[in-house]
Design a binder for these strands. Structure first.
Length: 418
RNA sequence: GGAGAGGUGGCCGAGUGGUCGAAGGCGCUCGCCUGCUAAGCGAGUGGAGGGUGAUAUAGCUCUCCCGAGGGUUCAAAUCCCUCCCUCUCCGCCA
């Protein structure tokens, strides 16, 4: 959520940001609604003050004097109730609208409406070449008996799969590999809940906008997270940090659940786009002035990991129109997939500035009062996609797949296959 | 799943309808005092949102917050309802 004061102080900034996202929203009624809510609330408070003052007098009176005073004040009480409910109605209407307004776009975010407009920041590593006929990840996964999508579909439906055999050991090796690095960099490792209350999803900006992407467990009013970003962000909800405690850096391992509504026919091959996958996610709470540098830092950590896995990749600055509602600026890392002859997203790293923090009420103490702080998130490793990238890029002529050197100590083997 | 207890400010803890945002203690901050790791004395010390003010602070002022949300009342931390959480015992499962 953006600071509502912006409506009064810099409405043109909000308009510009919305335009960059490709949204044509007339904010005039929003401004009017905010003002009406504030004014009504003010009037209600004045009545309330008078009522309380009268109440203090009543406490001192006795007998018929008291009866008379009560009779006089009850009119004030009625008036207050009416004004208050009107103020609440207006505030509720404003909140509903305001919650749907996405974060202010950072000036440095790329222009454009879709992922086609993403701006390449850099390329690292040479696109993998083979002196034999390479195959795609789906074929490799099946042939090496690492991934079983058919039985996943039988048991759970499309876009579910089994990870099997060495792929499982590879997953846990990757997790260990990544956690070792992140812990050394000061990230506190976490295994957070994957079932959360509505508040956590609202607080992180996934609700109300992306409701259809989230699995719900309606009997218990709980939701399955699509990323541990949700439970990590909500971890410090409604808390106030001392400025010297910041930044607070975390790394959460969790299974992620996504309904992938509206993606029918997209990436149907293999494990690339599935309803359930495991991921290690970085999450940071920091001072507002530090978030741009922290964003670069998270990206650097991601690049370090991808480089250690010996994957060719590029970094893109995501176009304003393709940003999620909470992100002000976002970098994706895309790994080279030889079978598709293209770079595909394997990580994502966002500066959400104060958008989530304001919704979640995460603050920091400063000399001039408490302030909303900034939050950021970034993928350390999305297991499924990284395994696929490793399969394709590191496949050998004999049908096996070599393991990146840095990973071998965490695995206990140096190749996939017999 | 059954039975019970409880959730008050950074922490402990009092408070069962009236001037309580809330005694007392601890902690913390500032000052004083003290010739010495300490003690004593004094003052201050929650959060959210408005208004006013100003270069920006400060200050002044109003409303809300005693787990959350509703209700009763002129008036609620205190009474009623719903929910959440914690603890204890029993049961069940591992």
């Amino acid at each position: 959520m953006i600071d509502p004061a912006l409506l009064r102080t810099e409405p043109e900034r909000l308009i510009r940001s919305l335009r960059r996202r490709g949204l044509e929203i007339d904010i005039t009624p929003i401004i009017e609604l905010e003002e009406a809510a504030r004014k009504t609330r003010q009037r209600a408070e004045e009545i309330r003050a008078a009522q309380k003052e009268a109440g203090r007098e009543i406490a001192r009176l006795q007998g018929s004097e008291k009866e008379a005073a009560i009779a006089r004040v009850s009119a004030l009480a009625d008036e207050f109730k009416a004004l208050e409910s009107e103020a609440e109605k207006l505030a509720g209407q404003f909140d509903d609208v305001w919650a749907t307004i996405p974060n202010l776009v950072d000036d440095r975010a790329a222009d454009g409406r879709t992922d086609a407009d993403n701006v390449e920041v850099r390329r690292v590593g040479k696109q993998t070449e083979f002196d034999f006929d390479p195959v795609d990840f789906a074929t490799l996964g099946t042939r090496l008996d690492l991934i079983d999508m058919d039985r996943g579909a039988k048991v759970s439906g499309s876009r579910f799969g089994y990870l099997k055999g060495q792929a499982v050991l590879l997953e846990f090796g990757l997790v260990r590999f990544v956690f070792d690095r992140l812990v050394a960099k000061g990230h506190v490792p976490m295994v957070p809940p994957v079932l959360v209350r509505e508040d956590a999803l609202y607080g992180t900006g996934f609700f109300p906008g992306d409701r259809e992407q989230v699995y719900s467990v309606s009997d218990d009013d709980l939701y399955l997270v699509g990323t541990s970003e949700v439970s990590l962000a909500a971890y410090h909800g409604d808390e106030i940090f001392n400025a010297d405690e910041l930044p607070k850096r975390y790394a959460g391992f969790s299974t992620c659940f996504r309904r992938e509504a509206g993606t029918y026919g997209k990436d149907t091959q293999g494990l690339f786009r599935v309803h359930q996958f495991d991921k290690v996610e970085m999450f940071v709470f920091c001072r507002p002035e530090d978030s741009p540098a922290e964003h670069e830092r998270l990206l650097a950590v991601e690049e370090e990991i991808v480089q250690a896995l010996e994957l060719p990749y590029r970094v893109v600055n995501v176009a304003a129109g393709d940003l999620g509602s909470s992100a002000a600026k976002k970098y994706d890392i895309e790994a080279w997939f030889p079978s598709q002859k293209t770079y595909r997203e394997i990580t994502s790293c966002s500066n959400t500035t104060d958008y989530q923090a304001r919704r979640l009420k995460v603050r920091m103490r400063t000399e001039s009062g408490n302030r909303i702080l900034h939050t950021l998130n970034g993928t350390a490793v999305a297991i499924g996609r990284v395994i696929l990238a490793i399969l394709e890029n590191h496949q050998q002529a004999d049908g096996s797949v070599r393991m990146p050197k840095a990973l071998i100590p965490c695995l206990g083997f140096d190749h996939l296959g017999p």
